[in-house]
Design a protein around this nucleic acid. Structure first.
Lengths: 383, 383
DNA sequence: CATGTTTGTTAGTAAAGCGTACGAACAAAC
DNA sequence: GTTTGTTCGTACGCTTTACTAACAAACATG
C-alpha cells in the first residue's frame, strides 16, 4: 500500500518555540487542512477548498494531486448543479480505501476490538476474554487480538489505536495499569513490531474524550467522565488532549470529595469519588436500597458528589461541556440531574452557567472509536 | 514504507488545523526561536545558535542580520577564549534598547504602573489613586497613567501590557469588571489609539501566572492562585495560558468548597472559596481571634479550604506546581502548610504526590511584571 | 611556519506558495 | 445558433525560505 506520509507538522505555539519549523512542516499542516475540510465538510471541489482554506486554487490543486497520488483522496464525479461555468470535480477522502483497528482494553475480563472505517463506523468486531490473566500473558492476549483484527481487515490499514487503562506516556508505554498487572510495559512498540503498522496508545478516558470530540457532539473545551469499575476523565482543551505533567491528567477517581467523610476506598482514604460513583458501588447501593425512592436517593447522592468534584475543575478551566460515559441505566436520570443541580448551586452562573452536562451517545464502543480517532488524528491530522 | 516515521511523530498532534500556514509564518517562528535562545541563554554566537536550534549557520546569519536591522539584537564583541579557530562574535538581545510599560489595575484604590526593561526589571514606578471612581472616569485614569509612563520612558517602547481584574477576552475587551464598573470596555483599543503603541490586555491572574512563568521559578504545568480582595487563578499548561471558553478560566473565587456550609458570600451563596481565603476575610478573622493559637487556626482553616479546592483541579490536570501570590504575612506559613497537608490527604500520592505548593517570590510587582511578560511573549515570542 | 579548527559569508539549489494568464466547459441572453 | 459571462482547473514565472557546498578570515598548536 502506498502508505500516507507521517504528519509531523509542529504546532505553532505562541510561547517558547522549542523546535525549528521548516517550509515542509507548513506543507504538512496545509495537507492536513485540506484533509480536515474534506473529512468534515464532505464533497467539495478544489475551488471550494481554496475558498475555505484561504490557499490559492493553484496550491490546492498541487496538494490535492499529491493526496490523490497517496491514495488518500479520490475524485467522485462532477457536481450536478445548474450553475454557470465549468462544472466542479468533486473530491472526497478515500473513505472506502482504508480501515483502522481500534482496541479497548479497559473493560473487566474482556478485551474489545474492531475494524473500523474512516468515518469511525464499525465493520468487524472481535473480543478476547482475559480470564483474569495478568502481566505479559494478558499483553500477549492483546497483541493476538490485534493480529486477528489485522488479518480480518478487508482493506489497507491506516493504523492501530489502543485505549488502555492506567497511566500511558506519550510514547505508548503503559507506566502503570494495576488492573492488568502492567508496569512500564512498552505496549506501542510491542504491537508495532508484531504488526509492522503504526500504533498509537493512550489512556482509555483520553481515547473516549477524543471519540466524543470526533464522533460525538462535543464542541469546544470539555471533559469526559468515564464511570466504570473506577472513575477517570479525559480532557480536551482548544481541540488538544491534556495529558498532564506525569501523564496522569484525569485521574480523578481517588480524589476525596466533600468534607463529611465517606466510605473507605481501596486506596485507604475515605470519600474518594470512586466510593460514590463507581459502577460496582452504585450497583451495591441500589441492591441494598429497599424501594424506588431509596434507589433514587443513592443515584442522586452520587450525582451530588460528581457535581461537587466538577465545580472547582470547571471553575478553573471554564469548560463548555461535561460529558458522562458509562452504564446509561445508572448514570442517565437522577444522577446526572443531581450533578447538574449541585454544580449550579456551587458555581457562579455568570461565569459557568452555560456549562452543559450530558450523557455520551456513543455507548460501549466509545473507547474503540476513540482509538480510531487517535489514528485519524495522528496519521492524517483529521478529527 | 513510511510507517516507522509515525512512531516518532507526536502521538496526538494538535487537532483541527484551522488556518493555513505559509512559509513566512515558519520564518516568524524561527525568528522567535533565535530570540528565545538569546533571551534565556545569554550571550551566544551565530554558530552557537545554529547548533542549538538545528538551523544552519547560513540561515541563522540571515535571521540575525534581520534582527540586528530591526534593532532587536546587538553584537557585543568577541568571545574571549583560548579556542582554536576564528573567534566568535557574541550576540545578545538588545537589552538596553527597549522598554516595556506594565500596568496593574487589580489593586483596590490604586492603579500601579511601571517602565520595565527587557528582563522585567523595574526602571520607573508610577501610581494613580482611583478614589473610588468608576466606569469611563476610571478608564481615563488608566489611560492617563499609561500616557505618563510612556512620556517617562527613556528608550523606545516595545509595547504596553495591562493586567486588569475581571473577564478579559482575547481582543483586550474587558467584558466584565464589577470592581471598576466596567462592562464590555474596549480597553486595548482605547490605549492603542491613545498611544499608538501595541497593547495587550489580560486578566490580572493570567498576567501574574505569566510573570511566574517568565521571571519566577515556575516550571511545567502550573496554576497561580492570586489572593487579594477576591480569589482568582491563572493557569499555564504546556507553556500556554489557558483562557477558557468564555475567557473565565481561573474564576475560582465563587466556587463553593466543602460540604459543611460556610459564611455567606456577597454572591449570595454560602462557603465560596473567597469567604475563607480573601484578604479582607482573613484579616477580619485574625482581628477577631483572641490569641496566637486562634489566629493560627484561622489561617490553617483557610489553607484547608484551598487544599480542598485544589485537589480536583490538580487531579484533573496533573499539575507540577501550584504557586500562591498575595500578602506574605497571611499566606506564607500555616495557611500554605495546611493547604499542602490537606491536598496530600485528598489525592493519591502515586499520581499527584510530586506536586509542589509554594509562595511566589515576585511580591507586589507580579502583575506589572506579568504584563511586561505578555508584551515580550506577544511581540517577540519570548518568555 | 605549516596545519588544523572554528566562524561567518557567498553562491547556487530545492521547496512552497503566490499572481497572472489561459483553455475548457457550461448557462443565459440575444 | 451565436455571443457573453462565469467558473473550474492548470501552466508559467516569481518571491521567499532554508538548505548544501565552498571559501576567506582569524586563531591555536606543533
Amino acid at each position: 500500500m502506498s502508505a500516507p506520509e507521517a504528519q509531523r507538522s509542529a504546532p505553532l505555539r505562541a510561547l517558547r518555540p522549542s523546535a525549528k519549523v521548516l517550509p515542509e512542516h507548513a506543507r504538512g499542516h496545509n495537507r492536513s487542512l485540506v484533509l480536515q475540510n474534506l473529512y468534515s465538510g464532505g464533497l467539495q471541489s478544489r475551488a471550494d477548498l481554496a475558498r475555505e482554506t484561504g490557499l490559492t486554487r493553484v496550491t490546492i490543486s498541487d496538494l490535492v494531486s499529491e493526496l490523490i497520488a497517496d491514495g488518500l483522496v479520490v475524485e467522485t464525479g462532477q457536481r450536478e448543479e445548474g450553475r454557470p461555468g465549468k462544472p466542479a470535480i468533486l473530491l472526497d477522502i478515500n473513505r472506502g480505501g482504508y480501515r483502522i483497528i481500534g482496541i479497548d482494553l479497559s473493560d473487566t475480563g474482556v478485551f474489545r476490538g474492531a475494524v473500523l472505517d474512516i468515518d469511525g463506523g464499525i465493520v468487524t468486531r472481535m473480543e478476547a476474554e482475559t480470564d483474569g490473566a495478568e502481566g505479559d500473558e494478558v499483553a500477549h492476549l492483546a497483541v493476538q487480538l490485534v493480529r486477528d483484527l489485522v488479518a480480518a481487515a478487508d482493506l489497507p490499514i491506516l493504523g492501530i489505536g489502543i485505549g488502555s487503562p492506567g497511566i500511558v506516556d506519550l510514547g505508548g508505554r503503559v507506566l502503570s495499569a494495576p488492573n492488568l498487572g502492567w508496569s512500564d510495559l512498552a505496549l506501542q512498540s510491542m504491537v508495532e513490531t508484531a504488526t509492522g503498522l503504526p500504533v498509537i496508545v493512550a489512556n482509555d478516558a483520553n481515547a473516549a474524550a477524543l471519540a466524543e470530540h470526533s464522533f460525538g457532539g462535543a464542541v469546544g473545551d470539555f471533559m469526559l467522565i468515564r464511570v466504570g469499575r473506577g472513575v477517570g476523565a479525559g480532557l480536551i482543551l482548544g481541540g488538544t488532549p491534556v495529558f498532564g505533567s506525569r501523564f496522569a491528567a484525569g485521574e480523578l477517581g481517588h480524589v476525596v470529595v466533600g468534607t463529611d467523610g465517606g466510605d473507605l476506598c481501596v486506596c485507604g482514604k475515605h470519600g474518594c469519588l470512586e466510593t460514590w460513583l463507581s459502577v460496582p458501588r452504585l450497583r451495591a447501593g441500589l441492591a441494598a436500597a429497599p424501594d424506588a425512592a431509596a434507589r433514587d436517593e443513592v443515584l442522586r447522592r452520587a450525582g451530588e458528589r460528581l457535581g461537587i468534584a466538577l465545580a472547582p475543575v470547571v471553575g478553573a478551566l471554564n469548560l463548555d461541556e461535561v460529558v458522562i460515559s458509562g452504564p446509561v441505566e445508572l448514570l442517565d436520570g437522577p444522577l446526572t440531574q443531581a450533578a447538574i443541580e449541585t454544580f449550579r448551586a456551587r458555581t457562579m452562573a455568570e461565569f459557568h452557567g452555560d456549562l452543559t452536562v450530558r450523557m455520551s451517545d456513543l455507548g460501549q464502543d466509545i473507547v474503540m472509536r476513540g482509538a480510531a480517532a487517535m489514528v485519524l488524528s495522528g496519521r492524517l491530522g483529521v478529527s
